[in-house]
């Protein structure tokens, strides 16, 4: 009569299963949505492979990115093609340098440029936008008018200007990218802050006697994170694009450092001589990075944007 009933066991398991009852945070929700997004997850995997390649790739390199292969540099077209035997897995560039090492270095540069540019935009833009939006009034209108003015200037030209004037180096490049990338971010953050500021929980915090910095750090910033992360992730490919464009023109970082834009430019310059691999390898890495970045950004937006539930 009190024999084992599978149904009863199931019910008992259901009752003691607290995971079903436990509240789900917004972040957990967003995480689940992102994990379910096939395109975004595939992109994360591909991008992870590229990062892995950049980290581990140099261990397999038989030539450094500065070394010139004197034996083959006279006949790049005939002997410089990609091959395992010569140790030049991606072939030689026009000057007889190992393209494998150079592509790794260029990919690393481009990834760094994207991450650091977006990170700078994230920090500066968020700080600026929160201050303008939270304190409001005249301060807000002055700060935002300034942003409007800067936004009306073609930013790539400003980037070129800064690089030419301050000298072409890694540091200048990052500062210049940071200087132009935060503008739109600050506008978005300001708009969000303005709406958050009037919400009940902020009012409750005020009534409870939380200090203004406390409100900003404990209540406003955490609520901004979703929007900020989405926009920053969309900024990464934009930064990579901008840097590649400038490098293509020959105004980016200088030799022996290189970036994907520079390598594509070099490959494009020599493609008439039948050395197509010089164009195709950097182009492949470039296109892959940009497309995966956009899919990840889109995935994050779908996951974090409460409007599109």
């Amino acid at each position: 009569m009190f024999g084992k009933s599978e149904r009863a066991e199931e019910l008992a398991a259901d009752i003691t299963d607290f995971t079903a009852v436990r509240g789900r945070s917004l972040w957990r929700d967003a995480m689940d949505r992102f994990l379910r997004n096939k395109a975004a997850m595939a992109s994360v995997v591909v991008l992870g492979l590229i990062v892995l390649f950049v980290l581990i790739g140099p261990l397999f390199a038989q030539w450094s990115n500065e070394e010139i292969d004197w034996n083959r540099m006279g006949d790049i077209r005939g002997q410089g093609m990609p091959s395992i035997e010569t140790g030049h897995y991606f072939g030689l560039d026009d000057l007889g340098r190992d393209l494998y090492s150079r592509v790794i270095q260029a990919t690393r540069t481009s990834l760094l440029v994207g991450l650091i540019g977006a990170a700078m935009a994230l920090v500066v833009g968020t700080a600026y936008g929160v201050i303008a939006g939270f304190y409001g009034g005249r301060l807000d209108s002055i700060m935002m008018r300034f942003v409007d003015i800067l936004l009306a200037i073609p930013l790539t030209l400003v980037l070129i200007l800064i690089l030419v004037i301050a000298g072409r180096s890694f540091t200048t490049l990052f500062i210049a990218l940071g200087a132009v990338s935060w503008l739109t971010m600050s506008r978005i953050v300001r708009g969000q802050t303005l709406t958050l500021k009037t919400r009940e929980f902020i009012e409750a915090a005020r009534a409870g006697g939380v200090s203004e910095p406390g409100i900003i750090f404990r209540h406003i910033l955490p609520n901004l994170m979703g929007v900020v992360i989405v926009y920053a992730s969309l900024l990464v490919p934009e930064m990579i694009l901008a840097e590649s464009f400038i490098s293509f023109l020959g105004l980016g970082i200088s030799e022996p450092m290189t970036s994907l834009g520079r390598l594509i430019a070099e490959g494009a310059g020599t493609m008439a001589y039948g050395t197509l691999w010089q164009l195709l390898f950097p182009l492949f890495f470039y296109v892959t990075i940009i497309i995966t970045m956009f899919f990840i950004g889109d995935g994050l937006r779908d996951a974090l944007d409460p409007k599109d539930r």
Partner: peptide, 11 residues
């Protein structure tokens, strides 16, 4: 379009 800016299309 996002991966084909002018300097990629040119070559």
């Amino acid at each position: 379009a996002q991966a084909l800016p002018n300097f990629i299309m040119g070559p």
